[in-house]
Simulated assay, not measured.
Amino acid sequence: MDGEVGRMRLLVEELSLLARLDAGRPLESDHVDLRRLAADVVEDARVVAPDRTVRLHAPALVQVTGDGPRLQQILNNLIGNAIQHNPAGTTIDVSLHEAHGTAVVRVSDDGPGIAPEDLRRVFDRFWRAEASRSRARGGSGLGLSIVQAVVHAHHGTVEVTSPPGGGTTVTVALPLPSPQDRPPVPDGTS
């Protein structure tokens, strides 16, 4: 019963977040160090899924303006999906860099991939690729819907690709703050 209550509580929280985003309610806006968020989520994933190789490729500091907890939720959902929907031994790569005025976050895996007919539905609410997947293991079908809604609320884009032969990559692009709005880069001293 505790498990079911927990799942219901999570479902209510997810639906509440989607309703707030659908209503256009503004998110918090602060300077966010994406590299630090990604490092924290990757470290948590390594603990939760020791049978997976989860690697972070973030050679430089990448900062955006946004809602830190919601941006962390994006990373949690993407890395969590890669863990949950791939077999043991799958490698998950998380990369982060700046390109053309955006912060680009990629979560890639070398798992079996997503069927071409399923790719167009991955952001649909309550949709899950495998009809036989149980709610206990498969989740609510809201994870990628939440990712898309949060990314759009940050004026960004999200795309999922899964070429024939396997592997899936989710690419999130978030606008970088203008140079005058960027915080000073920490120099490592305190």
Rank of each mutant, 00 (worst) to 15 (best):
D124P: 03
I74F: 06
A45M: 11
I114Q: 06
R137C: 09
P175T: 01
H100D: 15
P179C: 14
W127R: 05
E130L: 08
Q148A: 15
V105H: 06
G113A: 10
L37N: 02
D124C: 03
Q148L: 09
A115I: 01
V42I: 07
L176C: 13
V150A: 08
R106V: 07
G113T: 02
N81F: 11
L119T: 03
A60L: 14
T171G: 03
V64I: 14
F126R: 13
I92E: 12
I83P: 04
P50K: 07
A115M: 07
I114R: 00
E159Q: 13
H154S: 07
A115N: 07
G139A: 08
R125A: 14
D44K: 12
I83H: 07
Q84A: 15
A173H: 01
D40I: 03
A129D: 12
D110W: 01
A103S: 12
P177C: 10
L144C: 06
L78M: 13
D40L: 10
T157H: 08
N76G: 08
I79E: 06
I83M: 15
A45P: 03
A115T: 06
P59N: 13
G101F: 06
L174Y: 00
Q148R: 15
G89W: 02
Q148N: 10
L174H: 08
H152M: 06
L144I: 03
A60G: 12
I74R: 03
A82L: 04
R128H: 11
Q63H: 12
G156W: 00
I92S: 10
A82N: 09
P87H: 01
A131R: 10
R106F: 02
R137D: 15
L174R: 04
G113P: 05
V158G: 07
L176Y: 12
E159S: 11
D93P: 03
A99Y: 04
E159Y: 00
L61A: 13
G156I: 00
G80R: 05
H85S: 11
A173M: 03
T90P: 09
E43G: 14
V48H: 12
V104K: 02
R133N: 08
V94M: 05
P69T: 09
E117H: 11
G111W: 02
D93L: 10
V170E: 00
P164K: 03
L96E: 10
A60Q: 15
T91W: 00
A153Q: 02
N77I: 05
R106N: 15
A39N: 10
G111V: 01
P50C: 12
A153R: 09
L174I: 05
V160R: 02
V54E: 10
V62M: 11
V64K: 04
V107Q: 04
L176M: 11
A99P: 01
A49W: 14
D67V: 03
G143V: 01
E130P: 01
T169A: 05
A45L: 05
A88S: 14
H85W: 13
D51W: 06
R135W: 10
V62R: 04
V151S: 05
T169K: 00
I114K: 01
Q72G: 15
G68R: 14
V150G: 00
G166K: 07
A153E: 04
S162P: 11
S140P: 01
A103K: 04
V42P: 10
D109C: 05
Q72F: 02
G143N: 08
A82Q: 12
W127P: 07
A88D: 13
V62G: 12
H154D: 05
D93Y: 00
V42N: 09
V47M: 09
T90S: 03
S134V: 04
A115L: 11
V48S: 12
V47A: 14
